[in-house]
Amino acid sequence: MDGMSFSEFGSVLIMQGFNGLSYFSVLLLMALGLAIIFGQMGVINMAHGEFLTIGAYTTYLLSVLSSTYAPWFESYYFIAAIIVGFGVAFVIGYLVEWLMIRHLYKRPLDSLLATWGLSLIMQQTFRSTFGPKEVSATLPAWLMGSYSPKEGLDIPLNGLFVMALTLALTSAVAAIMFYSRWGLRVRATTQNRAMAGAVGIDTAKIDRLTFALGCGIAGVAGAAFTTIGSTGPTSGSLYIVDTFLVVVFGGAQSLLGTIASAFSIAQTNSTLEFFMTGSIAKVITLATIIGILLLRPEGLFRLRVRK
């Protein structure tokens, strides 16, 4: 790295750190919904990635619709897309829970297989509806370009936006889970289902809403995802293993753990990518996570739950 001045090197470091933060945001956005569904409810939803894709395609549809029928709406459609993406994913998640998941709570391994089947069906539905090619939503003008505080340092605005959204969503989830009446019921149900039912909590309803909320969050993640990448039928499934690892690595029942593990995985991966090829960086990251989990199966943080 000779010929590179100190300040240039500093810029590279900042940009690299920023890349890590972007990746962290994506991982965390994906993992938030899963932390609720898998962490709180113990359901493995292999179709979680497809709920992300639903959000992404919803955004794409809104982008196309607004540019065809309502050009004045083009700069605001994205805000609407986040809300609609949440709504669509929430409703579909609600239906999936009602039709499928609720019959499988006692058989977690089977719910894994059934939701994998669901993910295949959803992928093919996307492929038949939107075509096998990747599509991208037109970014509103205020998300394009970059912020450059000094020479040689460009921080893309869309990355900043995704980070802000991640921060907002994470705070919202934390607020709902820990400071609302509903969150209290969710936590009560997780910790002791029978007792929660005995004190009058409708645990079946709580399950359904929790699952739907997790899916809705994945929908928001999908909307955010369109600002940094294009959307294809299998976009969501690419991240599914990483996301599960984030949740498991963080300690399945801890929101803080999920955040910490998303951060460490993303930073490790992007730092390693700076020194070696992408695939080896990925392999080393995975191997490290697996190694740590073999030594410490409960993950980084562990919330004590009575079994």
């Binding site: 898998f38 113990g42 493995i44 977690p108 391994l109 894994l112 293993v241 599960f244 690892l245 498991v248 399945a252 090829t277 992408g278 695939s279 080896i280 990925k282 392999v283 995975l286 191997a287 996570i289 697996i290 989990l293 073999l294 030594l295 199966p297």
Partner: peptide, 30 residues
């Protein structure tokens, strides 16, 4: 490593999946 620590069920499934992902990335990359 897994069973001695009584890790099983869904956690085991996810770990084996991570192994599969890792090995296929390794083979494709190298």
């Amino acid at each position: 490593a897994m069973f001695k620590r009584r890790v099983g069920g869904v956690y085991f499934a996810i770990m084996t999946q991570a192994f599969a992902a890792m090995l296929s990335i390794l083979i494709i990359g190298q």
